[in-house]
Design a protein around this nucleic acid. Structure first.
Length: 303
DNA sequence: AATACAAGCAACCGCGGTGTT
DNA sequence: CAACACCGCGGTTGCTTGTAT
């Protein structure tokens, strides 16, 4: 089916917005209690912009709840953690950071975080460690360790795919009224829901770097204990399998390691290397319940 | 001081999803 | 059910500013 252009290009202005245009747009939206139809907005206000351009200007710049200024370390952490779960779904990530726009987060990721992760030997797309030979500045680690982590990550991705299917069938079959179709359409959405739940809060609260360093296994146990009751409660309404719980536990463990890797005030490579080693150890020490039993069905499932 | 290059960011473009007729 | 209109999202572009030579 053919598609008409979003707006007539003739006579329409492009490029940076002037303060006058900003005022017209903001005044109109404020006076009318909303933007209404973006397409008709330029005609009504007399702006020589297409509706799309108006929407972008409003959502990315003029909106009153926009948060200005540099990202805090908490926000940085959250972006990295959410990107590990959601990938390049900037709008979904932005929804977890009040006042930040998807465009802002996308730019921040592409200009700062991506480079930082790369310099640390982490693939920013997959969040997997990459071969140390590609990063001469990064302290070399045993290839066995790297492979081990890569296997973990591979298994994790497999699990995500499986859990997506599992959770969809759970919610659709057992409690179809509790959740919409789109809510359960992907594993990332599923994890986002958990992330926003009390379970997510509990996991985030366990984010004590020092205790993780000193006793990674106990940190894992702590998060499990703390969340067991919450999970059980949730499960009574929306059953969550043990595999989901264990998968989430792994994610939290990984995030904890990422905190160490990032070391927000550690611009020097030496500091970074030290923390990265600890983080690697932390990842390697993640408690494997019966040798990844919770993942064993993932391959059959994906097939 | 002039130029080249890199980084950061605002804005644009095209596509897909969804609602309406 | 098809055609259309609109909106939102993610990728990309290009302008501006900062830094190095």
């Amino acid at each position: 089916m053919g598609r008409t252009p979003c707006c007539d290009k003739k006579g329409l202005k492009k490029g940076p917005w002037t303060t006058e245009e900003d005022e017209i747009l903001a005044n109109y939206i404020n006076k009318n209690g909303g933007h209404g139809s973006w397409r008709s907005l330029p005609k009504i206000t007399g702006l020589l912009r297409c509706g799309k351009s108006c929407r972008l200007r409003w959502t990315n710049y003029l909106r009153p709840d926009i948060k200005r200024g540099p990202f805090t370390s908490e926000e940085e952490k959250l972006v990295i953690q959410l990107h590990a779960i959601l990938g390049n779904r900037w709008a979904a990530i932005a929804s977890q950071l009040p006042g930040r726009t998807d465009n802002e987060i996308k730019n921040f990721w592409n200009t700062h975080l991506k480079k930082r992760l790369k310099s640390m030997g982490i693939n920013p797309e997959t969040h997997e460690p990459v071969a140390s030979s590609s990063y001469p500045n990064h302290k070399s680690h045993a290839s066995i360790s790297t492979r081990h982590m890569a296997q973990w990550e591979s298994a994790r991705l497999e699990a995500e795919a499986r859990l997506s299917i599992e959770s969809s069938s759970h919610f659709n079959n057992n409690n179809p009224n509790s959740i919409t179709k789109t809510d359960s359409s992907s594993s990332s959405d599923y994890f986002l829901r958990i992330w926003n739940s009390e379970v997510g809060d509990a996991f985030r609260n366990v984010n004590k770097i020092t205790s993780c360093c000193q006793s990674p296994i106990s940190a894992g146990s702590l998060s499990t204990n703390k969340c067991d009751s919450v999970i059980a409660e949730l499960a009574s309404n929306n059953p969550i399998s043990n595999s989901v719980k264990e998968e989430f536990e792994w994610k939290n463990y990984k995030f904890c390691a990422e905190d160490l890797i990032l070391g927000y005030d550690s611009s020097s490579s030496n500091d970074m290397d030290d923390s990265s080693d600890t983080a690697l150890q932390l990842l390697l020490d993640f408690p494997m319940n019966n040798d990844m039993n919770f993942l064993e069905n993932s391959f059959a499932f994906s097939l």
